[in-house]
Amino acid sequence: MMLRMFTKVNVKRLIMLLAITVVSAAVMTGCSGKPEGERSEVTIGELTQRLKQAVKLEELKQRDKETLKRLYRLGDEEVEDFVLYTDVSNVKADEVAVIQAKDAAQAERVKQYVSKRIDAQTAKFKDYRPEEYGLIQKHVLKREGRFVLFAVSKDADRIEQVFDEALR
């Protein structure tokens, strides 16, 4: 009889221990990381490194805030961070921009401003340099969360692939 009672006590303890373990695991899972379905956000610096490894950006010049403002009419009120590469001369249309907006609403606005840049470049190169105009026609413009990608390049497809992979 004593043996049966000992077994019942052990079984109760084992059940209690399992219940505590399950509850603890549920609490720890609920408190860790971001909500389900939300991606961890990559930085512009990380994205730039990935782009440099995937495509040759050495032929382009990295630009500053003043150039971003001049080309896209964007400033600190919309943009949290960015990387912008353009051709050193004005005779080529090559351009790569990854812009991180302050929030999703700003990202949509950034995309609209980039569209205006595409229109300006299209008008500029249409009759002047047909081969560059062709590159512009094959541009990539997309938004993913707070990030906007704009690429005019013979490697635009690869740039888009790197962008997509980084933001998965």
Score class of each variant (00 low, 15 high):
S40R: 05
S40F: 02
S40M: 08
V42I: 07
V42Y: 01
T43M: 03
T43G: 01
I44V: 01
G45K: 13
G45F: 09
G45H: 12
E46T: 00
E46N: 03
L47V: 01
T48C: 08
Q49R: 12
K52F: 03
K52N: 06
K52W: 07
K56V: 12
K56R: 15
K56A: 15
L57C: 02
E58S: 09
E58T: 14
E59P: 04
E59N: 14
L60V: 02
L60W: 00
K61R: 10
K61P: 03
Q62Y: 00
Q62E: 11
Q62N: 07
Q62M: 07
Q62H: 09
R63D: 04
D64A: 07
D64M: 02
E66W: 12
T67N: 13
T67D: 14
L68T: 06
L68I: 04
K69D: 14
R70M: 14
L71R: 14
L71G: 06
Y72Q: 11
R73D: 15
R73Y: 15
G75V: 05
G75I: 09
D76G: 14
D76Q: 14
D76N: 13
D76E: 13
D76P: 13
D76S: 15
D76Y: 09
E77T: 12
E77K: 13
E78G: 03
V79M: 05
V79L: 01
E80N: 07
E80F: 05
E80Y: 09
E80D: 08
E80H: 10
D81C: 03
D81L: 01
F82T: 00
F82Q: 07
F82D: 04
F82S: 04
L84P: 02
L84D: 02
Y85G: 03
T86E: 05
D87P: 06
S89I: 08
S89K: 09
N90Y: 12
N90V: 09
V91F: 15
K92M: 13
A93Y: 01
D94F: 04
E95L: 12
E95K: 04
V96W: 01
V96F: 01
V98Q: 00
I99G: 00
I99Q: 00
Q100F: 04
Q100G: 09
Q100C: 13
A101S: 08
A101C: 08
K102C: 11
D103F: 03
A104W: 07
A104I: 08
A104V: 12
A105I: 11
Q106K: 13
A107I: 00
E108Q: 05
E108A: 08
E108V: 12
R109H: 15
R109K: 14
R109G: 14
R109Y: 14
V110E: 00
K111N: 05
K111M: 05
K111A: 04
Q112Y: 11
Q112I: 15
Y113R: 14
Y113C: 12
Y113Q: 15
K116Q: 15
K116F: 13
R117V: 03
I118H: 11
D119P: 04
A120N: 08
A120M: 09
Q121C: 06
Q121L: 12
T122W: 11
T122Y: 09
A123R: 09
A123H: 10
F125C: 00
F125G: 00
K126M: 09
D127P: 02
Y128R: 10
R129N: 04
R129M: 11
P130T: 12
E131G: 06
E131L: 10
G134I: 01
